[in-house]
Amino acid sequence: MTVPARRSEATRGAGSPVLAIDRVRVAYPDGPDTRVILDDVDLSVTAGELVVLTGPSGAGKSTLLTVAGLLRRPDSGEVTVAGTPTAGLSQRQRTKVRRDHVAFVYQSANLLPSLTAIEQLELVGHIHGEKASGTTARARSLLERVDLAGRADQLPVELSGGERQRVGIARALMASPSLLIADEPTASLDPERAGAVVELISEVTRSEGLATIVVAHDAWAEMHVDRRLHLDRGRLSEVGPPAGAAAQRA
């Protein structure tokens, strides 16, 4: 089933990118010197596109995601989300852009321990200032969508790792984002569960017309994705779509 999108189709149109990263640079102090993690990185992701990002540990993949998701200001460069350039925005304005357009899926699901599965989703509606009645209906249909309708009233401790991660994905969708950012969403799952999560993320990317970036390793190897990028020594390089992707896409 398809969850009705609240956002205007304009921002989802394939043409203009949902995320545009332009000459972004991030450096951390490293003893007396600085270590450049992102060295004038460019990246753009359009609606409905699934990008997988790989790279050695410590390469800066998570850092790139925090910059893309407006959690961190780059030292220089511009990050445009859903048409809004963010470099000149105040912290408050950046929070608003993030609330309206960006959602995250975390490695460890990151659910709130005192909320049931459905409440995890309702909280998003509450933060967005939505009416409780509509929120509950939408939350319920999203849980159905990730096959957890029967587990709506369970607390996180009562859910398996795979179930928690699916609640995490449903929660991300609850925000009706344009940009979905996932940092190793399958790392703590066994291959079978991981496969299901991969499948789900790739499916909602298309059905919801999301721009999705996933940092991932193995579980995504055979998966059809639009683009594979590799981050190493501060540089981003295209790995090239696997054979047959173009055919599948058509």
């Binding site: 998701g69 959690l71 408050r92 929070t95 608003k96 993030r98 609330r99 309206d100 960006v102 959602a103 995250f104 990151n110 709130l112 909280l123 998003v124 933060i127 967005h128 925000a175």
Partner: peptide, 16 residues
């Protein structure tokens, strides 16, 4: 701390 960070990432304002 982690939970508060998560809420902020979800777009909750500090005042919320």
């Amino acid at each position: 701390t982690r939970q508060i960070g998560l809420l902020k990432a979800m777009g909750a304002s500090t005042s919320y």
